[in-house]
Design a protein around this nucleic acid. Structure first.
Lengths: 173, 173
DNA sequence: ACAGATGGCTAACGCTGTTAGCCAGACCGT
DNA sequence: ACGGTCTGGCTAACAGCGTTAGCCATCTGT
């Protein structure tokens, strides 16, 4: 997962990640990113062809971490949809800007490490015993909950734990 | 619902809507919008304080149309979650750029017509017999399905009708 | 010791949202 | 009928955005 990037490029992605998580996508600009690294914006283009290429690495980070998170949850509680959903939710809400960046545009599939998308999906598919329709429904539910939560679309006093539980037990079987 | 805007402002919003649906949010700029109206960009600021204020009107349009769509579905098939979900999905997929614009940022609640958000939510709440947790779960599921569909996150050969049905029947009771 | 690659730099372009300031015409009160 | 205000255009300009071109120092390999 590592050597698709030179060391310097990896430093840039790290700075980009920090910047994104601190200040959101709107403030992740080539100039502020360069500033943080003590260089000028055009120098970034020695390491990445364009801004999108940097963002692709961040998307890959989210996918990788999601896969790891789900695999860990699966190891802890095999076959449990609640465990998967809880892990997914916690990771997403811990990194809302990253989640939005990775989620609010079409996936740059061609530029992503091969197999990564599938790897992130596998634990859920296993928990659904191979029922793809169910897996997609659960995924949509979880993604919907997370993104509505991130955007503050639910009333402030909404009992979201209850809504998660309600949805998951219903989808359970 | 109409006289919160002057006639000229309404013309501007109409042009913005057309532009958005034709070309997506990235090409909805103050200059292209002005072009379409035969004026220059700075003149737009005689009618709206900033670009966001124009976008808020588009968000209000989506909410209004969603409310109308759901109310019509409810009238056609009272109490049917499937009918509501189908109407929601159809409207969203018919206007993907508008749906994204209205959905991929925090709701500008303060600038929206009073009661509009609630009105859009009511049909679903009625179909859920007042069970708020269930209503939120269904909403999250539907939103998740729509947005994943719009962004092409499902495999091209995915049987999305089946996933919708699977989710809805599970949530049904 | 020289060649080429690496990774900085400045200057600049075209695009974005937005502001300031000017001006023509419509409308209104005396 | 005249003067004042409001309306809604305009041009010029600014700062910030992603990005390109072109220059140059330093480091690496033969």
């Amino acid at each position: 997962m590592a050597d698709r990037l030179t060391p310097r490029a990896r430093e840039i992605v790290t700075a980009a990640r920090d910047l994104l998580e601190e200040s959101g996508a709107a403030r992740l600009t080539m100039r502020t990113l360069a500033d943080r690294l003590g260089i000028k914006a055009p120098s970034l283009y020695k390491h990445f062809p364009d801004k999108q290429a940097v963002e692709v690495e961040l998307v890959a980070q989210l996918l990788t971490e999601t896969a790891e998170t789900l695999e860990a949850a699966e190891a802890r509680a095999p076959g449990s949809l609640e465990a998967l959903a809880g892990a997914y939710r916690d990771h997403a809400l811990a990194h809302p800007h990253l989640y939005r960046l990775a989620t609010e545009r079409p996936l740059p599939r061609a530029e992503l490490p091969a197999g990564l998308e599938d790897r992130a999906a596998l634990p859920l598919l296993r928990a659904c015993a191979g029922d793809m329709d169910l897996a997609r429904a659960v995924w949509a539910f979880a993604h919907g909950m997370v993104v509505l939560e991130i955007h503050g679309r639910f009333p402030a006093d909404a009992e979201l734990d209850a809504a998660w539980k309600r949805g998951l037990t219903a989808l359970q079987r």
